[in-house]
Design a protein around this nucleic acid. Structure first.
Lengths: 350, 350
DNA sequence: CTGTTAGCGCGTTCAT
DNA sequence: ATGAACGCGCTAACAG
């Protein structure tokens, strides 16, 4: 911004005919000041529409009331719900938040941490699943470590392997396992999983938890039954289309999409193809984003306390951590709705 | 943040055995410096994990690379889509954005502008419908005017009566009118409108546009056919419930919810009550948030270019405005889908 | 209770 | 090409 003729504290002080210090004191309520001076300063400030320079305040050792939030994609309901939780407690604590949207670009994520560090944000909250990538972790750590060394707080939602940060951990594994169990209990024996990029820890955890539970029940899940696609609605749509290309007898009776958004895409694909859900195929998602209960059929999913995820993360970031990174685990709960049912033609074991 | 022992430019300079000025020059590429010095500074900086103090930079007259965005509610798909657009172009211009969530509290909105002003944000983008409220407008103007006087850029999405700011204006009125026309064309003669708080300009524009077009076709819309409720999914649900309390013959054949989210709530209420859509009642929304095409029945709505709304607003905020506030109008387009159909039992005029 | 003054970390003239 | 010094706007010691 091409610094216009900003009104400064000095202007206010002069206009009120008091010293700089006095003006500062009344504006900040730091110390008591004679009433008449107080009034003069206040009216001068409002007269001049004075706005303190936060940069100068910060520099002079005043407080930083700003925290940073790094989010994969605000327009994804999952992330925006979590971000909402973060903002709620930030708001409650009188904090300003700088919300960065990385558009799912790992590099941009690192760049933003750097920028937030420059801003001297008092805390940084990382929202979104981490990338399983050595060099990325190294780059991230190179920013985060010095930041924390000078007192910066960091908290993350989801598992970040290499980073030793406070984290709020939804039970991806357990939730997926519980879902698998419920689905097997319904009688399904032939599954497909619509998975996102394997480098995302969230994807791995969910797929693994699901697969292991299936295995525990003696239900196979071959590699070709796990379709990797993009981590969004269109990914789910596309993967479901692929499934539909298979001959009917080789199709699964139940499809687990690792996120609700992907499940929504899958539902759309099935509807277009005239494949009835849950008549011909059951569909389940994960997250329980607000809209899925209003779908037809309402989506079976694993419910995560989305807002809480954000709230707890901000909580962690607000109270200085002691020695080791803390972990807050939040439960996941299977919500059976209409998109899943007993399979029509139960598969016999081969 | 309790200022830890931050690494400063001076530290880097000393460690590299050069002057402060030299260190500054290489780090900013401001001027050419001898290669060996350059290298020494660079490695010292990286060795010490130096992060420039953005506050000091800003204060010293350097550039501000941060803009502010004020958003009603990030977890509402409409706002998050628009916010996504804003972030996209901010990102593209190397800007850091401070995203504030007001949780639909008008006062908080003013408070945030004040904070952003203190941060010397180079631009402020207002996302969300304005409040038709004299004293609110006054308070807002009291912050905005001085801000712009010193070169601050302001842009808003939606109509803000009292504020003379650059604005991106979706065609709420025209879109609603076009929708009304289409619905009348389908044969509907008895409508209900699920409206949000009348103080929101967006609500007014949509309701008025709809009502006027109906009137133009000789279709009445009495006051009791416009149900005021909250501006969210639950509001739509609740209002639809109220509709269902009426005796069947007094029910509308078509319901227009002023936002898609409200329409989703209404759809849920009808489904619960066993009222078929569009069999017994047609439902239409407004906005075309991503998920509505995936509903069953897919929702008829008025499509707004949500991301573009944000993009254009950021564009406006980035290029200094000349004299008078500019207005960018963006069209709205009716998208007929399955949630609307010809009424089963066309009403005869009384 | 009030005013004066010394930095906070950095960009930027000025000399050199 | 490099270095010394000033000032951005403000808070927090220190005097008075």
């Amino acid at each position: 911004m091409k610094s216009g003729p900003h009104v400064t504290l000095a202007d206010v002080a002069q206009s009120a005919d008091v010293s700089l210090a006095t003006a500062s004191r009344v504006l900040n309520g730091t110390a008591s000041v004679r009433t008449d001076l107080r009034d003069r300063v206040m009216s001068a400030a409002s007269e001049l529409a004075y706005a303190p320079n936060a940069h100068a305040q910060a520099l002079a050792g005043g407080t930083h009331r700003t925290v940073g939030v790094i989010c994969h994609d605000v327009s994804d309901p999952y992330f925006s719900a979590v971000a909402g939780g973060v903002m709620k407690v930030a708001n409650g604590n009188g904090l300003l938040v700088m919300l960065a949207d990385t558009f799912r670009d790992p590099d941009r994520e690192v760049a933003y941490v750097s920028a937030l560090r420059a801003q001297r944000a008092s805390a940084i909250v990382l929202i979104g699943s981490a990338f399983e990538d050595r060099s990325w972790e190294r780059a991230m750590a190179a920013e985060l470590d010095p930041y924390r060394r000078v007192g910066g707080q960091v908290a993350a939602v989801s598992r970040h392997r290499g980073l030793k940060v406070d984290t709020v951990l939804p039970d991806n594994r357990g939730g997926a396992a519980a879902l698998a169990k419920a689905l097997v209990g319904l009688g399904h024996k032939r599954f497909a999983v619509l998975a996102g990029p394997a480098r995302l820890t969230t994807v791995c955890d969910r797929v693994d938890g699901f697969a292991e539970e299936l295995a525990a029940h003696g239900v196979p899940l071959s590699d070709e039954d796990v379709l990797e696609t993009t981590f969004d609605r269109d990914g789910g749509y596309e993967a479901a289309k692929r499934l539909l290309e298979r001959p009917k007898r080789r199709r699964p009776t139940c499809v687990f999409a690792v996120t609700d958004l992907m499940a929504i895409g899958a539902l759309a694909a099935f509807r277009e193809a005239g494949v009835s859900v849950p008549g011909e195929v059951s569909v389940a998602g994960f997250d329980n984003i607000p809209v899925v209960r209003d779908l037809t059929p309402a989506l079976t999913t694993v419910a995560l306390p989305l807002e809480q995820l954000g709230e707890r993360a901000m909580d962690l970031a607000l109270k200085a951590s002691g020695t080791r990174p803390r972990t807050v685990r939040l439960g996941a709960e299977v919500v059976l709705r209409e998109s899943t049912a007993r399979p029509k033609r139960p598969h016999r074991p081969l």
